[in-house]
Amino acid sequence: MKIGELSAASATAIETIRYYEREGLLPSPARTQGNFRIYETPHLERLQFIRYCRSLDMSLDEVRALLKFKDAPAESCGDVNDLLDEHIGHVSRRIRELRTLERQLKELRQRCCEARTAQECGILSELTQASKDVVSAEGRTSNHLRSVHTV
């Protein structure tokens, strides 16, 4: 199949397919005499594997590591387990960070409970003050910003 057909079959943009090829995640396909890429079923299956891993928010390095194991089926999968455990830890940290962000946004939202003029808006006032406090004269992050944005 040509790249457009692979793109349609895998719901993947053509540029993404080419990017995965450049990154070594997807092997280069054979080419026709007209220099068109010709993809086979294994390309589609590998692309689907990559896409599913990416949908689980795995980095390209994580996907690359998993593909190495997939390409060596006789190897032990202990390192695969370790990789997934690390990824789970990363996801757990991000969830905590997002919960902190949600709490901060809700606190910010409480600064303005009714429609007023923009100059009286507590949210805009707090955002303005926080933006002024972002970097102190010495180029260091202010304590206010750390308390508002530490996650």
Rank of each mutant, 00 (worst) to 15 (best):
N81I: 09
L66V: 06
S92E: 15
Q129M: 13
H90V: 01
S28W: 00
E23C: 13
F69Q: 08
R37A: 05
S92P: 00
L66Y: 01
R18C: 05
Q119V: 14
T150A: 14
I3F: 02
N35V: 02
L25N: 11
A74K: 12
T150H: 13
S28F: 01
V80E: 10
L105Y: 00
T128P: 00
A118K: 02
R94V: 04
T150C: 13
L66Q: 08
R46L: 01
S142P: 10
D57Q: 14
I3W: 00
A9H: 04
L101A: 14
G4L: 03
L105I: 14
E40T: 08
R37V: 02
A13C: 00
L124N: 05
K2Y: 12
I88P: 01
L56V: 08
R18P: 05
C112Y: 02
N81V: 10
R54Q: 15
R96L: 06
L83G: 11
T100F: 07
E114G: 09
T12R: 02
F69E: 09
T117F: 01
H87P: 12
T32G: 14
T32A: 06
K106P: 00
V134L: 15
D79L: 12
A65L: 05
P27K: 03
R54D: 05
L83S: 11
F69K: 08
I50F: 06
A130C: 04
I17H: 01
F49R: 05
Q33V: 07
A74Q: 15
E23Q: 15
E126M: 10
T16L: 01
S92T: 09
H43P: 05
L6E: 03
K2I: 09
F49I: 06
L101R: 06
R116L: 10
D82R: 14
L145C: 13
I38Q: 14
A8N: 14
R96A: 12
N143F: 02
K106S: 10
S10E: 09
K106M: 03
V80W: 07
F69A: 09
A74N: 11
R93K: 14
K2M: 03
G4T: 04
R96M: 02
N143A: 15
K70M: 04
Y39A: 04
Y19Q: 04
L145S: 12
R99I: 00
V134P: 00
Q129H: 12
R22G: 06
T41L: 09
R37M: 05
L83M: 09
E138D: 15
L56G: 04
F49S: 06
S142L: 07
L47W: 00
D82I: 10
L60H: 06
A9D: 11
F36G: 03
M1L: 01
D82V: 12
D57P: 00
A74H: 12
T100R: 11
Y19W: 05
T16P: 01
R99V: 00
L127C: 11
E75K: 14
V80G: 07
L66W: 03
A9Y: 01
M58P: 07
P27I: 01
A11D: 15
F36T: 10
P73Y: 02
L105G: 02
L44V: 02
I14N: 01
D85T: 02
L98F: 10
R64S: 15
E114P: 01
M1P: 09
V134G: 10
